[in-house]
């Protein structure tokens, strides 16, 4: 019997400290776990439990998985205590992923906040893989402080090589920060991306998602062109356990990325 409740084993190969509370884990699964960018996995810390994460690696890399995890609860706490060589489990992939076909030939404005850059990194790596398919790709990223910026070196590289138009802002600077200060909503205009024929992709903390969405609507993005990563409590991952219900959708099965058009009439979308 094919048992969708059980994970395949994976070995942690590398742990990267991204910020005081965020670490990236490079996993070598015992068997390949192919996924489409935007789909998520349930990560098992043996004997402790599972939590859902969208991989931050490219969908074209299949021999290893990268997950970036903020320490916030029991499972992530236990995961942060793990070292290279330790064993975990992965189950999935679940959900539908970003509709890349619908992005083709259009501008893509990627808006991230904090650890929300993790799933977006997978998207950006996948977009960069054949960047010529898209009219223009821009990243607008906001973090609380400079220390909270994740993938800092990589984002710098992206900025330099110019395939993606990158701008970063922090809520609060420190002594060395010479970049922009302010909320990410302040840098969504004048990106050179025409909102009438482009898509926006948003991932970050709920409040940031909410205000970024309102700003994008303001600028002229249609509700159906705004793709939101919804964070909900999840257990099964494939539309059975009922935990992730939002209005008439199951976020695990129908999302986790849903257009604003799809969710705008539901309550509880920003909570």
């Amino acid at each position: 019997m094919n048992n969708p409740y059980l994970p395949v084993g994976a070995t942690i190969r590398e742990v990267v400290e991204e910020s005081p509370t965020i670490r990236s884990f490079v996993l070598l699964p015992d068997e390949p776990v192919p996924f489409l960018t935007g789909q998520f996995l349930a990560l098992t810390v043996p004997g402790v439990g599972e939590a859902p994460f969208t991989p931050s690696s490219s969908q074209y890399v299949t021999d290893r998985l990268e997950l970036t995890v903020m320490r916030v609860g029991t499972v992530t706490e236990a995961l942060h205590a793990m070292r290279p060589g330790d064993r975990v489990g992965v189950r999935g992939p679940f959900g539908t992923g970003y509709p890349l076909d619908a992005f083709r030939g259009r501008g893509v404005l990627v808006v991230g906040g904090g650890v929300g850059l993790a799933p977006l990194r997978s998207l950006l790596l996948t977009l960069r893989h054949d960047i010529e398919r898209y009219r223009k790709v821009a990243l607008r990223y906001g973090a609380r402080t400079p220390a909270d910026i994740i993938y800092r070196r990589e984002v710098e590289e992206w900025r330099r090589d110019g395939r993606i138009d990158v701008a970063i802002t922090v809520d609060r600077g420190d002594g060395e920060w010479t970049g922009r200060v302010g909320l990410v909503t302040t840098i969504l205009q004048d990106t050179g991306i025409d909102p009438r024929d482009s898509v926006a992709v948003v991932c970050g903390p709920p409040v940031m998602m909410k205000f970024a969405t309102f700003k994008l609507l303001d600028i002229g993005f249609p509700p159906a062109a705004i793709h939101l990563s919804m964070e909900k409590n999840m257990s099964c991952g494939f539309g059975k356990c009922g935990h992730c219900r939002l209005g008439t959708v199951y976020v695990c099965r129908d999302g986790p990325v849903l257009t604003y058009e799809r969710v705008k009439d539901f309550r509880e979308i920003w909570e």
């Binding site: 098992t44 402790v48 439990g49 599972e50 257990s235 099964c236 059975k240 356990c241 009922g242 935990h243």
Partner: peptide, 11 residues
């Protein structure tokens, strides 16, 4: 009512 929760056990 059909909602359920997966829980992990054992050392």
């Amino acid at each position: 009512c059909h909602c359920f929760l997966l829980s992990d056990h054992g050392r």
